[in-house]
Nucleic acid binder design. Structure first.
Length: 227
DNA sequence: GCCAACGTTGGC
DNA sequence: GCCAACGTTGGC
């Protein structure tokens, strides 16, 4: 991903878009590597089981809340940073993984997503945000100074997209990965809403879909004891 | 800091 | 189109 970075990570304030259009899949002419080309088409491998992708409406997006430097730039962007942004809104830039990008392209304004803290002391869900601007060109792919610069992407056919998200609220309590994992294992053994949760079945995906059942169950945990 | 899992690259 | 090598993600 980014020049050696995580595929998640958002940063700075949004509202700065201007990219307007963007569009689709752009599968350019065919010289792309096949894995990439396949991933880029989206639909297919992302839902290997269902020919017609389910149409997701809830999401989970990962970002690192603790400082970590790359090329002298801090990748830190936790929920507190989103909350502190102008209008509590930010673009979610820096995603450099096709599946994650494709999921972002499916996002609709008004949908909600969990803000997940990754690669930190205690990974887990910290809060909830709302998608306030649908997919448009991620400008950082063209910025040589940016950690997520992608020399292979050209302005006349951008590879990467981003969305804008707005802080909604913190969850009533932090929901640690360890707790979610306990439920996942439990549900996998005896059945339950988290049995196929992407956080565990596709651990490296930085932008992932949740079914409403998964989302509601996870959210119900904020009113329960830490387990 | 380690390293398993897995996505991407690129030779053939 | 296969697949080994390589690079990244992210928990622990």
């Amino acid at each position: 991903m980014p020049p050696k970075k995580r595929a998640r990570v958002a940063k700075r304030s949004a509202k700065t878009d201007k990219g307007a259009a963007e569009g689709e899949t752009s599968s350019s002419g065919g010289r792309r590597r096949k894995a990439a080309a396949a991933a880029e088409t989206g639909g297919k491998e992302e839902s290997s089981e269902s020919p017609a992708s389910p149409q997701h409406c809830r999401w989970l997006m990962k970002s690192e809340p603790e400082s970590r430097f790359e090329n002298g730039l801090d990748l830190k962007f936790g929920i507190e940073d989103l909350k502190a942004a102008p209008d509590q809104t930010s673009c979610w830039d820096g995603v450099r993984n096709y599946q994650a990008r494709n999921f972002m392209r499916q996002m609709k304004e008004g949908q909600v997503a969990f803000f997940y803290h990754s690669n930190c002391k205690e990974p887990g869900i910290a809060g909830i945000m709302e998608i306030v601007k649908e997919a448009y060109v991620d400008h950082t792919q063209f910025d040589k100074k940016d950690v997520h610069y992608d020399a292979t992407s050209k302005p006349d056919n951008p590879k990467w997209s981003m969305v804008d998200v707005q802080y909604q609220r913190m969850t009533k309590r932090y929901l640690p990965l360890s707790e979610l994992k306990n439920y996942h294992l439990q549900h996998r053994a005896k059945g339950g809403p988290l049995k196929d949760m992407a956080l565990f079945t596709r651990a490296r995906l930085s932008v992932q879909p949740l079914t409403t059942e998964e989302f509601d169950f996870v959210l119900s945990l904020e009113d329960k004891e830490p387990l």
